[in-house]
Simulated assay, not measured.
Amino acid sequence: MKTFLLGLALIAAPAAAQMQGMAMPAPACTAPVIVPGFEGWGKGAPTPQLKLGATSSLVLAPAEAVKFSPPLNRAPQPGQRGGVYGITLDKPGSYRFALSEGAWLDVINGKGERMPSAAHMHGPACSGIAKIVDYQLDGGVYVVQFSGTMAPKIQVMLIGG
């Protein structure tokens, strides 16, 4: 019996060693994960413009056709897409952007300055959110630039204030 078990272990060891470097498939989602603050993610009719508290479905164009101002810190790669959208915030506060796709997000103030992000993280599996980025922003008009993605559309939700 010991010889049989030793034989099985020797046969299985190379296969186990080969699998260590392999990525495991994503878990099957049986129920959506709700991210606190983003309970409205994907609910209701998406808006075609960036809107506080609602899911927005934004169209992205080939990056070379988008006028980013200020220019991007990184050159777009072939096939990447982007878009520029505006938002007016009524009051200062902590704002969070949830994105359905991995993408670069730049928030530009009225002086044309990039605002630093306060934090960023991946969205949890099965949430539909790929990335969450936090900003401390004053009230006023902002330009939000999306870049570095291959997706023709991006779902975005902005919360906070």
Rank of each mutant, 00 (worst) to 15 (best):
I11G: 00
P14R: 11
A16L: 13
A17F: 02
M22L: 13
A26E: 09
P27V: 05
A28F: 06
V33Q: 11
V33D: 06
I34R: 12
V35S: 03
P36M: 06
F38C: 10
G40C: 04
W41K: 04
W41L: 02
G44R: 09
P48I: 01
P48F: 01
L50S: 02
A54T: 11
T55L: 00
S57I: 07
V59C: 08
L60I: 00
A65N: 15
A65P: 03
V66N: 03
V66H: 01
P70C: 14
A75S: 13
A75K: 14
P76N: 10
I87T: 00
I87M: 10
T88A: 12
T88M: 00
L89T: 10
D90M: 06
K91C: 04
K91M: 02
P92E: 12
P92L: 03
P92S: 14
S94P: 00
F97K: 09
A98W: 03
A98I: 11
L99M: 14
L99T: 09
S100E: 06
A103R: 11
L105H: 10
D106Q: 11
G110T: 14
K111M: 07
M115N: 09
A118L: 08
A119V: 02
H120R: 09
H120C: 01
H122Y: 14
G123R: 07
P124L: 09
C126T: 07
C126I: 08
S127V: 03
G128V: 07
A130S: 15
I132P: 08
I132A: 01
V133H: 00
D134V: 07
D134F: 04
Y135I: 07
L137M: 08
G139I: 12
G140F: 02
G140N: 03
F146H: 05
A151L: 02
P152V: 03
K153E: 13
